[in-house]
């Protein structure tokens, strides 16, 4: 259910960017990296395209004329778990967090190299094949083979990234998983830098799986180290 397997297949990318030059340059460079790039010049344009065409990943600029990037992000997230990477010139903490809260899986700040972006796209689309057994945490039942999570028998809808985060935590059997390990295993590259990415995703995950997200009982913070699940 996570789209086509990316091995041996050309990945299709929807690039939503209003700056013509950036669109062209990134398009050329991503083409060199082996992606099929489709352009959208505005949020409306992107949403229209997505009605008729399927893509493997969306690269979304936040500052768009008309429908704002955040709104596009929320609209896409409401429709499904299509991977979204925000490409933004805004570097303020509040902008980054707003983008992630709107449902983005990852973000990169301009100026970015297409090669870096390519690595992140591949990491995001990589299937996590480490775990096939059904995992149980509290009243959660995690089925890696079908990528579904049941809570007391009812399905909880998680995005690809949230799901992988939960699997990494659940398969540690209650041991602490450090922030660095989570970033490397879930986002897949040697990540260093701010941990807002992880913080926001943990928050989103808790909102979906915890009875009381403000007083988490399943995904527990270990101060100064990382997170663990409370079996």
């Amino acid at each position: 259910m996570f789209g086509p397997d990316n091995r041996g297949m050309t990945l299709s990318v929807l690039l939503v960017e209003d700056d013509e030059h950036i669109r062209q340059a990134l398009g050329l460079a991503l083409d060199d990296e082996g992606f099929t790039v489709t352009d959208a010049v505005s949020g409306e344009d992107a949403l229209d395209l997505l009605k008729t065409t399927t893509f493997d990943v969306v690269l979304l600029d936040l500052m768009l004329p008309g429908v704002d990037g955040l709104e596009v992000c929320r609209a896409l997230r409401a429709q499904g778990d299509l991977p979204i990477i925000i490409v933004t010139a805004r570097t303020d903490a509040s902008d980054v967090i707003a983008g992630l809260e709107a449902g983005a899986d990852d973000y990169v700040t301009k100026p970015l190299m297409a090669s870096v972006l390519a690595a992140r796209i591949r990491a995001l689309l990589r299937r996590s094949g480490r775990q096939d057994e059904v995992l149980r945490v509290g009243e959660l039942e995690i089925q890696p083979q079908t990528s579904t999570v049941l809570r007391a028998g009812a399905e909880v809808h998680l995005t690809r990234t949230e799901f992988r985060l939960l699997v990494e935590l659940a398969s540690a059997d209650g041991r602490v998983v450090s922030r660095e390990q989570l970033l490397q295993r879930v986002w897949g590259y040697d990540y260093f830098g701010d941990t807002r990415l992880l913080d926001v995703h943990i928050r989103r995950l808790r909102r979906k799986v915890e009875a009381d997200p403000d007083d988490p009982e399943l995904v527990v913070t270990v101060r100064g180290v990382g997170y663990r699940v409370d079996l």
Partner: peptide, 24 residues
């Protein structure tokens, strides 16, 4: 500062990616 940041980062994105294409 935010505007400056945006105005500088946008053309740089074009430049580094065009440079990458050329370097190839």
């Amino acid at each position: 500062a935010g505007d400056v940041s945006h105005e500088l980062r946008s053309p740089l994105t074009t430049m580094v990616n065009a440079a990458e294409v050329l370097r190839r």
